[in-house]
C-alpha cells in the first residue's frame, strides 16, 4: 500500500512546473543565468556581483536546510563550515598552493573532517544543548581565526590568486569573472539537485523519519545517530563548497564569516524561504539579501526594522515564502 504525502512531489515535469514554488525558483535561476549577459547591456553590472553573492549564500542555506529542514538539527554554527572551506583555500593560497585540483578536494575533506568531529560530539545531545554546542564550536573556530596572525587574524586575509584549474589541454579560468559566476551558478544547481536526490532517497527518508519521531525510527531498528551524522557531514561539506566559492569570488576572507550572526542569518534565510522545502533556501536567501540591501539603502538603521520583522515572521509566517507560494497553487492539484 502506498501512501501519498505532501512531500512526495508529482513526477511529471509539467505537473511540477505548475507547482508555483518550483516555477518561481526556476525562473529565479534562469534570471541568474541571464544576468551576466543582460546586466552590462543595461548598465547594471553591479547586480552581477549581488546575484553571485546571493547564490553563494543560497548554497550555504541549501546545505543547512538539509540537516535543519529535513533532519530537525538546529545547527547554530553552520557558518563555520563556510569559514573552514574559505580558510583552507586561503591558507593554501598563502602558502603557494594555487592548484584548484589540490585546493578544492582538500578543503572539502577538511570541512567533512571538522563536521564529523563536531557532529559526533554535538549529536550526542538534543534540543537546546545541540543549539548551544554547535554555536560554541562555531565560536571556537571563529576565535581561532582571530588569533592566528599568520593568516590575517581579525583583519582577514587577501587571496591574490584564485584557484587554478589547468589540465594543460583545457583550463577553467576562474580569474575571469563571468566564468566564476557560472561556476557558482552551476554549483548552486548541483547542490539543489544533490539535496533533492538525498531527500528523496532511502537515506533522506530515514532522516525525515528521525525528525518526526526518533523513538519510532529506533524501534524499527534504524541507527538514527549514524544517519544524522552522515547528513551533518554532507551538509558541512556543501557549506564548505560555498566557502570555497566565496573565497574565490571575494578574494578576501575574514573570521567574521564564521561569526555566529552569520549562522543566525543562514537560519533566518531558511525559515524565511520555507524550511524543509527544496527551493526554500534559494527563495529565502534572495529575499533576505534583497531585503537587507533594500532596507540598508533606505535607512542605515535597518536592523531596527529587520529585528521586529524577524519576530513577526516567526510568529505569523508559517512555511515561509515557499509556503505562501504553495498556497497560490491551483486547488485541483491532487
Amino acid at each position: 500500500m502506498t501512501q501519498t504525502s505532501k512531500s512526495q512531489r508529482p513526477q511529471n515535469l509539467w505537473a511540477r512546473l505548475r507547482d508555483s514554488r518550483t516555477s518561481v525558483s526556476l525562473l529565479l535561476l534562469a534570471i541568474a543565468a541571464a544576468t551576466p549577459l543582460a546586466a552590462p547591456a543595461l548598465g547594471q553590472s553591479f547586480y552581477v556581483d549581488v546575484i553571485a553573492r546571493i547564490m553563494i549564500w543560497a548554497i550555504a542555506a541549501t546545505s543547512l536546510n538539509l540537516i535543519l529542514g529535513y533532519g530537525g538539527m538546529v545547527s547554530f554554527g553552520h557558518a563555520v563550515y563556510l569559514g573552514i572551506g574559505a580558510y583552507a583555500m586561503g591558507i593554501m593560497a598563502t602558502e603557494g598552493i594555487t592548484n584548484g585540483f589540490i585546493q578544492w578536494p582538500l578543503a572539502l575533506l577538511l570541512c567533512g573532517f571538522f563536521a564529523l568531529i563536531f557532529g559526533a560530539i554535538s549529536l550526542r545531545t538534543k534540543g537546546v544543548y545541540f543549539i548551544m554546542i554547535t554555536l560554541a564550536f562555531g565560536q571556537m573556530l571563529f576565535f581561532l581565526g582571530i588569533s592566528v596572525e599568520r593568516y590575517g587574524s581579525d583583519d582577514g586575509l587577501l587571496i591574490f590568486t584564485r584557484s587554478e584549474f589547468d589540465l594543460g589541454f583545457a583550463e577553467l579560468d576562474l580569474s575571469n569573472g563571468t566564468t566564476l559566476y557560472y561556476v557558482i551558478w552551476a554549483s548552486l544547481i548541483g547542490c539543489i539537485y544533490l539535496s533533492h536526490r538525498i531527500v528523496n532517497s532511502r537515506f533522506g527518508m530515514v532522516l525525515r523519519g528521525a525528525m518526526s519521531n526518533e523513538t519510532r525510527m529506533q524501534a524499527i531498528g534504524v541507527p538514527t545517530y549514524r544517519y544524522r551524522l552522515a547528513a551533518f557531514v554532507i551538509a558541512g561539506m556543501m557549506a564548505g563548497l560555498a566557502g570555497l566559492l566565496s573565497a574565490n569570488f571575494e578574494r578576501f576572507i575574514s573570521p567574521d564569516m564564521m561569526n555566529w550572526p552569520r549562522s543566525g542569518e543562514l537560519i533566518v534565510m531558511i525559515v524565511l524561504g520555507g524550511m524543509g522545502t527544496l527551493f526554500g533556501p534559494v527563495l529565502g536567501s534572495v529575499a533576505f539579501l534583497m531585503l537587507s540591501e533594500l532596507l540598508s539603502t533606505w535607512t542605515e538603521k535597518w536592523h531596527l526594522i529587520f529585528g521586529p520583522f524577524l519576530i513577526l515572521v516567526v510568529l505569523f509566517a508559517r512555511g515561509g515564502l515557499a509556503g505562501m507560494l504553495e498556497r497560490l497553487n491551483p486547488r485541483s492539484d491532487p
Partner: peptide, 20 residues
C-alpha cells in the same frame, strides 16, 4: 513554540536592541 522559533525571534531581538 519550538526552540528554532525561540532562536530566530530572540536573534531578531538582538538585532533590534543593538540598533536601538
Amino acid at each position: 513554540r519550538n526552540h528554532l522559533d525561540h532562536v530566530l525571534a530572540t536573534f531578531g531581538l538582538i538585532l533590534f536592541f543593538n540598533e536601538l
